[in-house]
Amino acid sequence: MNLVLFGPPGSGKGTQAKILQEGQGWPQLSTGDMLRAAIAAGTELGKKCKAIIDAGQLVSDEIVIGIISERYDQPDCAKGAIFDGFPRTIPQAEALDSMLKARDKQIDLVIELKVDDSVLISRVEARIAQSGGAARADDTPETLKARLEVYYKNTAPLLEYYKKQGKLVTVDGMAPIAEVTKAIAAVIEKAGSK
């Protein structure tokens, strides 16, 4: 099964992707992790990405799809994968659909973790309070607010894209982690029995 975990920054996508990876054996395909790995490995694509990132620019959709294609063709993705942090735009979703279709595959399920902005901001504030300061430079309420703006402008339209395909299911991302995990498991089980 190929699934996309969807939701605003800080909604718990990474946490749930790791739980799914352990429970189902589907690899978590995080574009950020893949870009860093390609750069560290010094692959042709990695060198190209490093030059772009070093110049302070965003890596193009074409390059990101190239990295995802390379990663998706690895044996551990044979039974499916969890797409985390990708796609972020409709053109990326269309490119992902094309890449998968060329392999006789598709996105089977899109799970949206629905979380109110105020809860996301309070989560960041709680992490800062717990650690005595931001654990990451980009983990501040101000940065989160800017990232949420980008999310609603560029990424949220994907919800309609996947809804039209009949693949979107929404889960309450504000519930405790174990309850979110249970809700996702139920959605996957229902999708798998179709």
Rank of each mutant, 00 (worst) to 15 (best):
A51I: 04
D54Y: 07
K48A: 11
A137R: 09
R71K: 14
L29D: 04
E179K: 15
D117L: 01
K79C: 06
Q21D: 14
M34Q: 12
K194R: 14
V110D: 01
P75E: 14
G192Y: 11
A135P: 06
K47W: 08
K163W: 04
A37E: 15
R123G: 07
A129E: 10
E62C: 03
K50W: 06
S30R: 11
R136A: 09
A41W: 06
D116H: 12
I68G: 05
V150E: 05
L144F: 00
A178Q: 13
S193P: 03
A78I: 10
A40P: 08
D108K: 05
I128S: 00
C77E: 12
S11Y: 08
V187M: 05
D108T: 06
E160K: 15
D117M: 01
G10E: 02
D61V: 02
L96G: 00
L96R: 00
L148H: 03
A191S: 13
I177P: 04
T140I: 06
Q28I: 10
Q16H: 12
I53K: 06
K194Y: 12
G12I: 04
A126R: 09
D116F: 05
K167V: 02
K167Y: 00
L5W: 05
D104A: 10
V59H: 08
R136T: 07
P75D: 14
S30P: 13
Q74T: 15
C49Y: 01
L96D: 00
P9W: 08
S11L: 08
K182A: 15
D73E: 15
V124C: 05
P8N: 07
S118F: 02
V119D: 10
A55Q: 14
L109V: 02
A186L: 10
A129R: 10
A55K: 15
G173N: 04
T181K: 15
G56S: 09
A137L: 14
I52Y: 03
V171C: 07
A17M: 12
A185M: 07
L100C: 04
R136Y: 14
R127I: 07
I52D: 05
I67H: 02
K48N: 11
G80M: 07
D33L: 07
Y152N: 08
C49M: 11
L45Q: 09
E125S: 07
S11M: 10
Q21N: 13
A134S: 10
A186D: 13
L168Q: 04
E125K: 13
K153C: 06
I63L: 13
A175L: 14
K101H: 08
S122N: 11
D172G: 12
A38C: 09
M99N: 04
R123V: 09
K48R: 15
C49S: 09
A191H: 11
F83E: 06
G12M: 06
Q57W: 08
T143I: 14
N2F: 07
A191D: 12
L144E: 00
A178R: 12
L148W: 00
Y152P: 04
G133T: 10
G173Q: 03
G173A: 09
K47R: 13
P87L: 04
G7Y: 08
D97V: 01
V180R: 05
I65H: 01
W26L: 13
T89E: 01
